[in-house]
């Protein structure tokens, strides 16, 4: 298989190139887009990224709440000293550490979720060009070795500044 990265200076040409790719029978499952800043969804006809990020804070909040509940109940029952005439298990006072626990859990799980769902850290690397962060648009695609030459021509014709290749 051959991995390719076509670098486009103009975003219009890159968008056009993705159309050409689709005409040539490559689906948007095959290719991926690399950009230096976010673009509106669908600008390059890319596949819609599916994620489950919204689940993470809920799970985190539940875990955090449970920890908070456990902590407040356990510490108060382990040293049951009445202070200021308040009950040992004072719900209004317990609510505050419990609330902070809930939020902390939600935040920590969300952060973990962001990294996991973005597939970071990405140790494998992959084809990349520093010009991407200068406003160039990259299209990565993987094809069988025998089709590589033809595809390279297609991308160059569509306006790619350069096509990087890596055989595997």
């Amino acid at each position: 298989m051959t991995k390719m990265l076509a670098v486009f200076k103009e975003e219009e040409k890159a968008a056009k190139a993705t159309e050409e790719l689709e005409k040539a029978g490559h689906t948007n499952e095959n290719f991926d887009i690399l950009t230096g800043s976010p673009y509106p969804e669908g600008a390059f006809g890319e596949a819609e990224p599916k994620h489950h990020l919204y689940v993470y804070p809920l799970v985190g909040a539940f875990v955090g709440f449970s920890m908070g509940l456990l902590l407040t109940i356990a510490t108060q029952s382990a040293w049951p000293l009445v202070v200021g005439g308040k009950p040992i298990l004072s719900i209004p006072a317990m609510m505050i550490p419990m609330y902070e626990g809930t939020m902390l859990g939600a935040i920590l799980f969300t952060i973990a979720g962001i990294l996991f769902e973005s597939r970071l850290p990405n140790l494998k690397g992959g084809l990349y060009d520093p010009r991407i962060t200068e406003g160039y648009v990259g299209i990565t695609i993987e094809v069988a070795k025998k089709d590589a030459g033809e595809l390279q021509k297609l991308l160059e014709k569509a306006g790619a500044e350069e096509v990087l290749r890596r055989e595997s």
């Binding site: 689709e22 689906t27 948007n28 499952e29 095959n30 969804e41 669908g42 006809g45 890319e46 596949a47 819609e48 990224p49």
Partner: peptide
């Protein structure tokens, strides 16, 4: 291969 659903085409 089936074409994946693109991001919403408004």
């Amino acid at each position: 291969m089936q074409r994946q659903k693109t991001a919403p085409m408004h």
